[in-house]
Design a protein around this nucleic acid. Sequence first.
DNA 1: TCGCTACTATGACCGCTGTCATAATCAGCC
DNA 2: GGCTGATTATGACAGCGGTCATAGTAGCGA
Lengths: 198, 198
Amino acid sequence: MSERQRGPRERMVFSAAQLIRRDGVNATGMREVAAHAGAPRGSLQHYFPGGKEQLVGEAVAWAGRYAGKRIARFVEQLAEPTPSALFAAMAAQWTEEYDRDGFAAGCPVAAAAVDRAASDDAVRAAVAAAFTTWRTPLAEALTALGVPAGRSADLAMLMISTLEGAILMARAERDVRPLTTVVRELGPLLDAAVTRPA
Amino acid sequence: MSERQRGPRERMVFSAAQLIRRDGVNATGMREVAAHAGAPRGSLQHYFPGGKEQLVGEAVAWAGRYAGKRIARFVEQLAEPTPSALFAAMAAQWTEEYDRDGFAAGCPVAAAAVDRAASDDAVRAAVAAAFTTWRTPLAEALTALGVPAGRSADLAMLMISTLEGAILMARAERDVRPLTTVVRELGPLLDAAVTRPA
DNA sequence: TCGCTACTATGACCGCTGTCATAATCAGCC
DNA sequence: GGCTGATTATGACAGCGGTCATAGTAGCGA
């Protein structure tokens, strides 16, 4: 998560995502987001006239795009071009963060889903869209790695589901073992789906 | 989730779990819990002198025990005594609820993890304990179904991780497909782990 | 200089939250 | 009846939440 000097608007969206993934949507205040972004409070109603709903929606969308873009970069850097290696790379991003910075934060998309799925349909739709933005390039990557087109989408869904759940458990237990375990256990299944070696 | 006429204390814990799994921890107020349980407001500070932290902790613990107990019942009722059938039964509980009552609620343990993992260490520990309370009988059931003892714990972790993630996605997308998909995709892997048929 | 637009500043409002203090009521038992 | 402890009732409090209203400033083209 690079922190380049973009405009204040983008910084606020980024800060919102960061705070949401740590404390959840409801515990993240608008004033807190502005302060964290080093942005003036008055800019909130200027850039986000739709209020918190809009800000949270954009933060979720940002996170979805971020996750989607990372897929391509993971694929490029794989030592072994296999689905299991891709999954391992996705999980490694989390184990590295947890080893480095502690277990303070989880996935902002998951946080928004938990806190807003029942109460805010716009955010709920943004969460669904974010999952799609994440899943689509992952499925394409699987196809490129030799997984039949008919299975790629389902395996992508399995991978993201498993990863999200493992993040949840790892954070609760303050231990990366859930992440390393699911990587180890799921790997063979993913590689067995390859019919045409890349 | 039966609603027997237990004491007001237990009803409040149960109501807390229900409200938390729908709206998250932070959006669930103490007064709301009492009202939902049909309990007097004054009973809150009587039964839960530890405040919201205690109430949420007990709700999470309750949910963990509930999930753990269901495992044994699922195993009893399996038409085919296989790990994949057990996993399917666990997921079916969610697809049935979503088909019947809509996608209003998720898992209370996951909700508590998202909302409190970073801010409330007592609740965070309760979440971790709840996962253990859930995972342990599941691992034992897998062993009873013929999975080698060394793999049971890891597969139980994989199953719960995947299920939690699928619940998240299903709720966001208002579609049970994530649940049915992970059941279909993970099933063969689970059954392949059986070395000694039950 | 004027005017216009983009952005910032600030204070107020109302509603809600968790918590506490205090008192009333009730159940059971001597 | 009268005492005792468990339960309930109620009001207050201080804090924070998102949002709005209003005014101010900065930059820039004409």
